Computed example of a mutant assay.
Amino acid sequence: MHGPALSGWLLMLLCGITSAYCVLRARSGTAGERRAAHADAVMGFGMAAMAVPAALLTLPDWMWAVYTVAFGGAAVRALVGARRSGHHLHHLVGSLAMVYMAVAMAPGAGQGGHAAHAAAGAAGGVPVLTGVLLAYYALYVLRSAGRLIPVDTAAGGSDGRGGGAPGGPGIAWGARPELAMACRLTMGLAMFAMLLTL
Protein backbone atom coordinates (compact mmCIF):
# COMPACT_ATOMS: atom_id res chain seq x y z
CA MET A 1 0.00 0.00 0.00
CA HIS A 2 2.87 2.42 0.67
CA GLY A 3 4.15 2.33 -2.90
CA PRO A 4 0.85 3.21 -4.63
CA ALA A 5 0.06 5.86 -2.01
CA LEU A 6 3.46 7.42 -2.65
CA SER A 7 2.84 7.46 -6.39
CA GLY A 8 -0.52 9.15 -5.77
CA TRP A 9 1.16 11.83 -3.66
CA LEU A 10 3.83 12.38 -6.31
CA LEU A 11 1.26 12.63 -9.11
CA MET A 12 -0.83 15.05 -7.07
CA LEU A 13 2.19 17.22 -6.31
CA LEU A 14 3.52 17.15 -9.87
CA CYS A 15 0.18 18.03 -11.43
CA GLY A 16 -0.51 20.73 -8.85
CA ILE A 17 2.85 22.48 -9.37
CA THR A 18 2.56 22.21 -13.15
CA SER A 19 -0.95 23.68 -13.05
CA ALA A 20 0.18 26.55 -10.84
CA TYR A 21 2.82 27.41 -13.44
CA CYS A 22 0.13 27.24 -16.15
CA VAL A 23 -1.84 29.85 -14.18
CA LEU A 24 1.27 32.07 -14.23
CA ARG A 25 1.62 31.48 -17.99
CA ALA A 26 -1.96 32.63 -18.48
CA ARG A 27 -0.99 36.12 -17.30
CA SER A 28 1.00 36.89 -20.46
CA GLY A 29 1.05 36.12 -24.15
CA THR A 30 -1.55 36.31 -26.87
CA ALA A 31 -5.21 35.54 -26.31
CA GLY A 32 -4.73 32.07 -27.83
CA GLU A 33 -1.72 31.34 -25.59
CA ARG A 34 -3.69 32.46 -22.52
CA ARG A 35 -6.62 30.21 -23.46
CA ALA A 36 -4.25 27.26 -23.92
CA ALA A 37 -2.60 27.99 -20.55
CA HIS A 38 -6.01 28.12 -18.84
CA ALA A 39 -6.98 24.79 -20.42
CA ASP A 40 -3.66 23.26 -19.33
CA ALA A 41 -4.23 24.55 -15.78
CA VAL A 42 -7.78 23.12 -15.59
CA MET A 43 -6.54 19.76 -16.88
CA GLY A 44 -3.64 19.69 -14.41
CA PHE A 45 -5.73 20.65 -11.38
CA GLY A 46 -8.31 18.02 -12.35
CA MET A 47 -5.58 15.40 -12.62
CA ALA A 48 -4.14 16.48 -9.26
CA ALA A 49 -7.55 16.15 -7.61
CA MET A 50 -8.10 12.74 -9.22
CA ALA A 51 -4.69 11.53 -7.98
CA VAL A 52 -5.34 12.39 -4.30
CA PRO A 53 -4.48 9.23 -2.33
CA ALA A 54 -7.53 7.55 -0.79
CA ALA A 55 -5.65 7.46 2.54
CA LEU A 56 -5.85 11.27 2.60
CA LEU A 57 -9.35 11.76 1.24
CA THR A 58 -12.04 9.41 0.04
CA LEU A 59 -14.05 11.23 -2.58
CA PRO A 60 -17.84 11.09 -2.28
CA ASP A 61 -19.65 9.03 -4.92
CA TRP A 62 -21.15 12.12 -6.57
CA MET A 63 -17.69 13.60 -7.22
CA TRP A 64 -17.16 11.26 -10.18
CA ALA A 65 -20.30 12.67 -11.81
CA VAL A 66 -18.90 16.19 -11.27
CA TYR A 67 -15.64 15.14 -12.98
CA THR A 68 -17.61 13.66 -15.88
CA VAL A 69 -19.72 16.80 -16.39
CA ALA A 70 -16.80 19.23 -15.92
CA PHE A 71 -14.47 17.48 -18.34
CA GLY A 72 -17.32 16.76 -20.73
CA GLY A 73 -17.85 20.53 -20.88
CA ALA A 74 -14.10 21.04 -21.37
CA ALA A 75 -14.21 18.53 -24.24
CA VAL A 76 -17.02 20.47 -25.94
CA ARG A 77 -15.07 23.71 -25.53
CA ALA A 78 -11.94 22.08 -26.96
CA LEU A 79 -13.94 20.72 -29.89
CA VAL A 80 -15.19 24.22 -30.71
CA GLY A 81 -11.65 25.62 -30.41
CA ALA A 82 -10.10 22.82 -32.49
CA ARG A 83 -10.82 24.79 -35.67
CA ARG A 84 -8.37 27.48 -34.53
CA SER A 85 -5.49 25.44 -33.11
CA GLY A 86 -4.11 21.92 -33.20
CA HIS A 87 -3.38 22.14 -29.48
CA HIS A 88 -7.14 22.18 -28.86
CA LEU A 89 -7.25 18.68 -30.36
CA HIS A 90 -4.84 17.58 -27.63
CA HIS A 91 -7.08 19.23 -25.02
CA LEU A 92 -10.05 17.41 -26.56
CA VAL A 93 -8.28 14.04 -26.20
CA GLY A 94 -7.20 14.93 -22.66
CA SER A 95 -10.69 16.01 -21.60
CA LEU A 96 -12.24 12.87 -23.06
CA ALA A 97 -9.58 10.77 -21.31
CA MET A 98 -10.50 12.44 -18.01
CA VAL A 99 -14.19 11.69 -18.63
CA TYR A 100 -13.26 8.09 -19.41
CA MET A 101 -11.20 7.73 -16.22
CA ALA A 102 -13.94 9.32 -14.09
CA VAL A 103 -16.53 6.91 -15.48
CA ALA A 104 -14.18 3.93 -15.12
CA MET A 105 -13.29 4.81 -11.50
CA ALA A 106 -16.82 5.66 -10.35
CA PRO A 107 -18.21 3.33 -7.70
CA GLY A 108 -19.87 0.39 -9.38
CA ALA A 109 -17.75 0.68 -12.54
CA GLY A 110 -14.94 -1.49 -11.24
CA GLN A 111 -13.71 -2.55 -7.83
CA GLY A 112 -14.39 0.50 -5.77
CA GLY A 113 -13.59 3.70 -7.57
CA HIS A 114 -11.06 6.08 -6.05
CA ALA A 115 -9.69 3.66 -3.48
CA ALA A 116 -8.99 1.14 -6.21
CA HIS A 117 -7.37 3.83 -8.35
CA ALA A 118 -5.14 4.92 -5.52
CA ALA A 119 -4.12 1.34 -4.95
CA ALA A 120 -3.34 0.95 -8.65
CA GLY A 121 -5.99 -1.70 -8.89
CA ALA A 122 -8.98 -0.13 -10.60
CA ALA A 123 -10.63 -2.76 -12.75
CA GLY A 124 -12.82 -0.34 -14.69
CA GLY A 125 -12.24 0.71 -18.23
CA VAL A 126 -12.19 -0.87 -21.65
CA PRO A 127 -8.77 -2.42 -22.32
CA VAL A 128 -8.73 -1.49 -26.02
CA LEU A 129 -9.65 2.15 -25.32
CA THR A 130 -7.16 2.33 -22.47
CA GLY A 131 -4.50 0.93 -24.81
CA VAL A 132 -5.29 3.52 -27.51
CA LEU A 133 -5.04 6.35 -24.96
CA LEU A 134 -1.78 4.94 -23.58
CA ALA A 135 -0.35 4.79 -27.10
CA TYR A 136 -1.47 8.38 -27.78
CA TYR A 137 0.13 9.70 -24.60
CA ALA A 138 3.33 7.69 -25.14
CA LEU A 139 3.71 9.23 -28.61
CA TYR A 140 2.78 12.69 -27.29
CA VAL A 141 5.42 12.45 -24.55
CA LEU A 142 8.10 11.29 -26.99
CA ARG A 143 7.24 14.05 -29.45
CA SER A 144 7.21 16.70 -26.71
CA ALA A 145 10.53 15.47 -25.31
CA GLY A 146 12.04 15.63 -28.80
CA ARG A 147 10.92 19.22 -29.19
CA LEU A 148 12.72 20.15 -25.97
CA ILE A 149 16.10 19.03 -27.32
CA PRO A 150 18.08 22.18 -28.16
CA VAL A 151 19.12 22.75 -31.76
CA ASP A 152 22.03 24.96 -32.82
CA THR A 153 20.47 27.64 -35.01
CA ALA A 154 23.39 29.81 -36.08
CA ALA A 155 27.06 30.36 -35.58
CA GLY A 156 27.57 31.69 -32.09
CA GLY A 157 25.13 29.20 -30.51
CA SER A 158 22.22 31.62 -30.06
CA ASP A 159 18.88 29.92 -29.78
CA GLY A 160 17.08 32.79 -31.44
CA ARG A 161 15.05 33.83 -28.39
CA GLY A 162 17.30 36.76 -27.58
CA GLY A 163 16.75 36.35 -23.88
CA GLY A 164 20.23 35.49 -22.67
CA ALA A 165 20.30 33.33 -19.57
CA PRO A 166 17.09 31.65 -18.40
CA GLY A 167 15.07 34.10 -16.38
CA GLY A 168 17.15 36.99 -17.72
CA PRO A 169 15.75 40.35 -18.73
CA GLY A 170 15.07 39.38 -22.37
CA ILE A 171 11.98 37.22 -21.80
CA ALA A 172 9.50 36.66 -18.97
CA TRP A 173 9.22 33.27 -17.26
CA GLY A 174 5.60 33.00 -18.34
CA ALA A 175 6.51 33.55 -21.99
CA ARG A 176 9.19 30.86 -22.28
CA PRO A 177 7.94 28.34 -24.85
CA GLU A 178 10.24 25.58 -23.61
CA LEU A 179 8.71 25.82 -20.12
CA ALA A 180 5.21 25.58 -21.59
CA MET A 181 6.30 22.49 -23.52
CA ALA A 182 7.90 21.02 -20.37
CA CYS A 183 4.58 21.52 -18.53
CA ARG A 184 2.69 19.72 -21.29
CA LEU A 185 5.28 16.94 -21.26
CA THR A 186 4.86 16.60 -17.49
CA MET A 187 1.07 16.41 -17.74
CA GLY A 188 1.34 13.90 -20.58
CA LEU A 189 3.52 11.69 -18.38
CA ALA A 190 1.08 12.06 -15.49
CA MET A 191 -1.86 11.15 -17.72
CA PHE A 192 0.04 8.11 -18.98
CA ALA A 193 0.72 7.04 -15.37
CA MET A 194 -2.94 7.50 -14.39
CA LEU A 195 -4.14 5.49 -17.40
CA LEU A 196 -1.84 2.63 -16.40
CA THR A 197 -3.93 2.14 -13.26
CA LEU A 198 -7.10 1.33 -15.23
Rank of each mutant, 00 (worst) to 15 (best):
W64D: 14
A51S: 15
M63I: 13
A48Y: 02
A26N: 05
M50R: 07
A37L: 00
A26W: 05
A54V: 14
G29Y: 06
G46T: 02
P60C: 11
T30P: 01
P53N: 09
A51R: 02
A36V: 05
R34K: 15
M50G: 05
R35C: 00
A41G: 06
T30V: 01
F45N: 05
W62S: 12
E33C: 02
A55T: 13
A48M: 07
G29A: 05
G46H: 01
L57F: 15
G44P: 00
F45A: 09
A65G: 14
F45V: 08
T30Q: 06
R35D: 04
W64A: 10
M50Q: 10
H38E: 03
M47N: 04
A26Q: 02
A26T: 05
A48C: 07
A49W: 07
G44A: 03
G44V: 01
R35A: 04
W62C: 08
M43A: 13
L56S: 13
A31C: 02
D40F: 04
M43P: 03
A36C: 07
H38P: 00
D40K: 00
L57V: 09
W62Y: 11
A49M: 10
M50N: 07
A41H: 02
A54N: 12
A36Q: 10
A54L: 05
A48P: 00
G32T: 08
H38G: 06
P60R: 08
M43E: 06
A48I: 02
R27H: 10
W64N: 12
G44S: 04
R34D: 06
V42A: 14
G32F: 11
A54Y: 12
A49L: 14
A31M: 08
G44I: 01
A31T: 08
V66L: 15
G29V: 01
A65V: 11
A55H: 11
A54T: 12
V66E: 08
M63V: 14
A65W: 06
